[in-house]
Design a protein around this nucleic acid. Structure first.
Length: 325
DNA sequence: TTGTGTTTTATTGCCTCC
DNA sequence: GGAGGCAATAAAACACAA
């Protein structure tokens, strides 16, 4: 690339080159100008131009209204400073003044694309070359795009974090509910055993002889996500020692007592009917089902043999695991 | 003062559109 | 084919800590 201090070459460089030199010529004495600077003066803007860095000039009210950029430029007050400042500037890249930038920013906010007419107008108002205006807009669009990408990324990350957090909460809730089902199942088994009406099989009795998965987590494959959370909380408040408050819903969890000799006591689920809107019904029907169980204990519920020895969840066709002995 | 990182201005090459 | 846009990049200007 170009060495430091070199003036810009290449196809697009001449305009800017001229523009910079125009500015310089207007401040410096004519004896310092080169032939190229004289050439550049042909393109000098009609109005007073911006000269050099932001510290060189001071504009008031540039962004305030519709006035021309130069209306409030106090040339006399600043001329000496401009000259002094300019003498310190090399013939290299020059930054736009703060006010020029503000003016361009304002223009960019209105419309980030630059039509040719607008480009010329801005160039005139700011005392810059049209190409400089175009370059500034180009770079500004690039900066805007980068910022936008960062913003979008941040937004996506926040959404991801929220989703992840929700997922983890649901996972925990599912674990809690699963644990509770086990707990309640055990209680029910114990209760049934104690009553002597059902020869229910304790799942842990023969656990050594069974595959671990089916013994330790017999309902782990049951779709738990449809179990309303409120049931969980409500159940915690109820007397868990009572079989009448245990967990089976006559609407959403149809209990079917099938006499299979010594090995059947099957609950069939209709999970598709469960939704969060059914929480209330679910709770009620759980109670009624529990009552039914209680009644069965009392009244020798028809359809259930007195020597059932299996308690589990169905369901071969759904791939649910259950245990048999 | 100097080294280093960041920002700004500008160039280059490629692409699309008219 | 020329104009204009964009991505990648260079390099000057600037900010700032040591």
């Amino acid at each position: 690339m170009m060495a430091p201090g070199m003036l810009y070459g290449g196809a697009g460089a001449s305009n800017y080159f001229d523009g910079v030199l125009i500015q310089k010529q207007r401040v410096m004495s004519s004896s310092t100008t080169t032939p190229k600077e004289h050439l550049g003066s042909l393109f000098a803007p009609a109005s007073s131009s911006f000269l050099g860095s932001s510290s060189m000039v001071s504009f008031g009210g540039v962004n305030g209204g519709k006035r021309s950029f130069f209306d409030s430029f106090d040339q006399e007050d600043n001329e000496a400073d401009e000259l002094g400042e300019y003498l310190h500037q090399s013939e290299k890249k020059r930054r736009l003044t703060e006010n020029q930038v503000q003016f361009l920013e304002k223009s960019f906010d209105e419309e980030n694309k630059l039509e040719p007419e607008r480009k010329v107008q801005l160039a005139k108002e700011l005392g810059l070359q049209p190409r400089q205006i175009a370059i500034w807009f180009q770079n500004r669009r690039a900066r805007w795009k980068t910022k936008q990408l960062e913003k979008d990324y941040e937004e996506l990350r926040n959404r991801y974090d929220t989703l992840k957090s929700n997922y983890n909460n649901l996972l925990k809730e599912k674990e809690n509910l699963t644990a509770e089902v086990f707990q309640l199942t055990d209680k029910l088994l114990a209760k049934e055993k104690g009553n002597g009406q059902l020869a229910l099989c304790d799942t842990r009795e023969n656990s050594d002889a069974l595959p671990k998965e089916t013994v330790a987590y017999p309902i782990s494959r049951i779709e738990m996500s449809n179990v309303p959370a409120r049931v969980h909380k409500q159940q915690q408040q109820e007397d868990l020692s009572s079989a009448k408050s245990d967990v089976f819903d006559s609407e959403s969890v149809h209990s079917t007592f099938i006499d299979q000799g010594d090995s059947a006591y099957v609950f069939e689920t209709e999970q598709s009917e469960l939704s969060q809107d059914d929480d209330e019904n679910f709770s009620k029907t759980m109670l009624s089902t529990a009552n039914l169980l209680g009644k069965a204990e009392d009244d020798d519920y028809p359809g259930r043999s007195s020597n059932l020895s299996y308690f589990g969840f169905p369901v071969e066709d759904q791939g649910f695991g259950f245990w048999t002995y």
